[in-house]
Amino acid sequence: PEDLERKVRELQKNGVSPEQIEKILRRDGVDEREVQELVKKVS
């Protein structure tokens, strides 16, 4: 979803590592495939 992507970009802009971003997304209940997609987009 659009807002998730925005969140991921925000986190990355704040210097959060892709690994941390993955953890955060998983903790928020984002589905694994979605997590991978989002992280791939920003890394």
Rank of each mutant, 00 (worst) to 15 (best):
D28S: 13
L11R: 00
R33E: 09
E2N: 12
R27G: 07
L4S: 02
K23I: 14
K23F: 11
V30I: 11
G15A: 02
I21E: 01
D3H: 09
K23L: 12
L25G: 00
K40T: 09
S17R: 06
D28F: 14
L38I: 13
S43A: 12
K13G: 05
L11K: 00
D3C: 14
S17Q: 05
E34M: 15
Q12L: 15
K40S: 11
V35M: 05
E10K: 09
Q12P: 00
P1R: 14
V30F: 14
E34S: 12
R33N: 10
E19R: 09
Q36N: 06
V8N: 00
G15I: 00
V42H: 05
E5A: 11
E34G: 04
G29E: 02
K13P: 00
K13T: 05
V39A: 03
E37S: 07
E2I: 12
I21A: 01
Q12G: 04
S17E: 04
R26G: 03
E2H: 12
E37L: 08
S17L: 07
P18W: 15
E19P: 03
I24A: 03
G29L: 03
D28R: 13
R6N: 09
E34H: 11
K41Y: 06
R9H: 05
Q12K: 12
V35L: 14
E10P: 00
V30G: 02
D3W: 13
E10S: 07
E34K: 14
K23P: 01
V42T: 07
P1C: 10
G29S: 02
D31I: 04
P18S: 09
V16N: 07
R33K: 13
P1F: 14
E32V: 06
L11C: 03
R27C: 12
V30L: 14
K41P: 04
K40H: 10
R33T: 10
N14R: 14
N14D: 06
I21H: 00
V39W: 04
P18E: 05
K13F: 07
R26I: 13
Q12M: 15
R6V: 07
V42M: 13
S17W: 03
E19G: 07
I24T: 03
E22M: 15
E22P: 02
K7H: 05
P18F: 14
L4C: 04
V39D: 01
K23C: 15
K13I: 07
I24D: 01
I24G: 01
V39F: 07
D3L: 10
I21D: 00
I21Y: 01
E10C: 15
I24M: 11
S17A: 08
E32Y: 06
R9G: 02
E5H: 09
V16R: 06
R9F: 07
Q36L: 08
V8I: 10
K40I: 06
V30N: 03
L4F: 05
V35Q: 01
E22H: 07
K40W: 12
P18N: 11
R27L: 10
E10Q: 12
V42W: 09
S43T: 13
G15K: 04
S43W: 15
E10N: 10
V42P: 04
R6W: 11
K41S: 09
L11F: 05
E10I: 12
Q36K: 10
Q12V: 15
Q20H: 06
E22Y: 12
G15V: 01
I24L: 10
S17M: 04
D3K: 07
Q12T: 12
S43C: 14
P18T: 12
G15L: 02
V16Q: 05
K7M: 11
V8Y: 07
L11D: 00
E32I: 08
K7D: 01
E2S: 14
Q12C: 14
V8G: 00
D3P: 06
G15Y: 02
G15D: 02
K40D: 08
Q20R: 05
L25E: 00
S43R: 14
E32H: 04
E22K: 14
Q36T: 06
E10W: 15
N14K: 13
V16G: 01
L38N: 01
E22A: 14
L11N: 00
R6C: 09
E37R: 15
S43I: 15
R33I: 08
L11Y: 07
E19W: 08
V16K: 09
E10G: 05
L4P: 03
V35S: 02
L38P: 01
R27I: 06
N14L: 14
Q20L: 07
L38T: 04
E5Q: 09
R26Q: 05
E22G: 07
E37A: 11
D31G: 09
R9S: 04
L38R: 02
R6H: 08
R33G: 08
K23S: 11
K13S: 08
V8M: 03
Q20A: 09
S17F: 03
R9V: 04
S43H: 10
E10F: 14
G15N: 04
V30A: 07
R26H: 04
K41F: 06
S43D: 06
D3R: 08
P18V: 14
E10R: 13
R9D: 02
G15S: 02
L38F: 05
L25W: 00
I21L: 04
P1L: 13
S17N: 04
R27N: 10
S17K: 06
Q12W: 15
L4D: 01
D3V: 09
V8T: 01
P1D: 10
L25R: 00
I21G: 00
G29A: 02
V35W: 07
D3M: 10
L25Y: 01
E37Q: 08
P1S: 12
R26S: 06
E22S: 09
K7G: 01
E32R: 03
V35Y: 06
L38W: 12
E10Y: 13
R27A: 14
R6M: 11
E32P: 11
N14I: 10
Q20I: 09
K7N: 02
L25I: 02
L38K: 01
P1G: 12
E19V: 06
E22R: 13
D31C: 06
K13W: 06
V30W: 14
D31W: 04
L25M: 04
K7Y: 14
G15P: 00
E32Q: 06
K41I: 11
K7T: 05
K40L: 08
Q12F: 15
I24P: 00
P1Y: 14
V16L: 14
D28K: 12
E34D: 10
K23M: 13
K7P: 00
E10H: 09
R27E: 13
L11H: 01
E5Y: 14
L4N: 05
I21Q: 01
K23G: 08
K41A: 09
K41V: 06
K13V: 05
V42D: 03
Q36Y: 06
E37P: 01
E22N: 04
I24K: 02
E5C: 08
E19S: 11
E19A: 11
L25N: 00
R9Y: 08
V16Y: 15
D28G: 09
P18Q: 10
G29K: 02
Q36V: 08
K40E: 10
E22L: 15
E2W: 12
K41T: 06
V39K: 03
G15Q: 02
Q20F: 05
K23N: 12
K7R: 13
E37T: 05
L11P: 00
R6T: 09
D3I: 08
R27T: 07
G15T: 01
K23T: 11
L25F: 02
E32M: 07
P18H: 07
R33D: 10
V8C: 04
S43P: 05
I21K: 00
K23W: 11
Q12N: 07
V16T: 06
I21T: 01
V39L: 15
I21V: 03
S17V: 03
V16F: 15
L4G: 01
Q12R: 14
R26A: 07
I24N: 01
G29W: 02
Q36I: 10
K41R: 11
E2V: 12
E34W: 14
Q20W: 08
Q12H: 15
S43K: 12
P1Q: 12
R26D: 01
R9P: 00
E37C: 09
E19K: 09
V39Y: 04
R26W: 04
R9Q: 05
V35A: 11
R9L: 08
V30Y: 15
L11M: 10
V42R: 03
S43V: 14
K40V: 06
R27M: 12
R6P: 02
S17T: 11
V39R: 03
R9I: 06
Q20G: 07
V35K: 01
R27P: 01
E19Q: 10
E22F: 13
S43Y: 15
V8D: 00
D28N: 11
L4K: 03
D3N: 10
P18D: 08
V30E: 03
R26L: 13
K23D: 11
K40Q: 10
P18A: 11
L38C: 05
K7C: 10
K7Q: 05
G29R: 02
K13M: 11
E37V: 06
D28A: 15
G29P: 01
K13D: 05
V16D: 02
V8Q: 00
E5W: 15
V30K: 02
R9T: 03
K40Y: 11
P18Y: 13
K40M: 08
E5F: 12
K23R: 12
K7L: 12
E37D: 09
L25D: 00
K7W: 14
